[in-house]
Design a protein around this nucleic acid. Sequence first.
DNA 1: GCCAATCGGAACAGATCGGTCCGATTAGCA
DNA 2: TGCTAATCGGACCGATCTGTTCCGATTGGC
Lengths: 147, 147
Amino acid sequence: MRLSSLADYAVVLMSAAARHCGATARLNASVLAAETGVPLPTAQKLVSRLSAAGLLQSARGTGGGFRLARPAAAISLADIVEAVEGPIALTTCVDHERDDCALDHHCSVKPHWGVVNQAVRSALANVSLVQLSTAPAASAQRLKVLA
Amino acid sequence: MRLSSLADYAVVLMSAAARHCGATARLNASVLAAETGVPLPTAQKLVSRLSAAGLLQSARGTGGGFRLARPAAAISLADIVEAVEGPIALTTCVDHERDDCALDHHCSVKPHWGVVNQAVRSALANVSLVQLSTAPAASAQRLKVLA
DNA sequence: GCCAATCGGAACAGATCGGTCCGATTAGCA
DNA sequence: TGCTAATCGGACCGATCTGTTCCGATTGGC
């Protein structure tokens, strides 16, 4: 129940990229690393993975760099996490529907995981990059929770 | 964003224990392992951890075993997950408030993690053991989500 | 046509997770 | 009352995965 460090870093990097998105100039990995404090090699790996997932547009060669592929409002926490960690699935039986679960015949709790998984994913999908640059209260309101 | 296998197994074990809770007799680790399909040594490790967390009451010696420490309705998914994996914290900066985060001065996304983390935790806290033994629709209703 | 800067992927150490085993403790029984 | 047997509890070890680092491939500018 813990996000990987890479996913955490990716969110920070994307947030920094979103802040600089006003400038149409591209950002390279070095700038993002220096600004966020993420180690440069790690930042390189992350931006590569983020561009492979379609969240960033990359341009090679001198003067190249990265740019948000979509408006910040159209990029959610869930997108970033899935780009780095793969599909959000609390248990293995959620994504692969195949019954590779070593447990007995019909696991009684299996049907419930889909619901819980969806709830968790929604919690992340409802936070966009723009919210990460605004006051926390805004997202708090949207995420008012299932009490 | 994936639950550890141990946490997954723990949920299955607790669910099985809840089903047998009608019988006041105690359950030992062997019975639970045989019924759920979880490897016995792993089941032993898990029930130990669950009793240490106060979710199970253990009795040693011949004829000993385990029993739910609380009514099934008072035990949630979050309780089980936290018993096995420790506190639910998507990022390290959520539980330890100390700023051991290696990133720069003030991380702009940090204030938001608390909100998201709370939402995720609530998604798990709102599913009790009794719901895991009933139809999935019941929990689906309660978890109707933040669309 | 050459150079320099950048992205992309491949290889290595480290840590955590998962599995296994053996010792400590206690109730039942002779 | 002492022994036996069954069970819990904690310690050890291997394996997988994460996180980091490095070097080669590609591309635009001069």
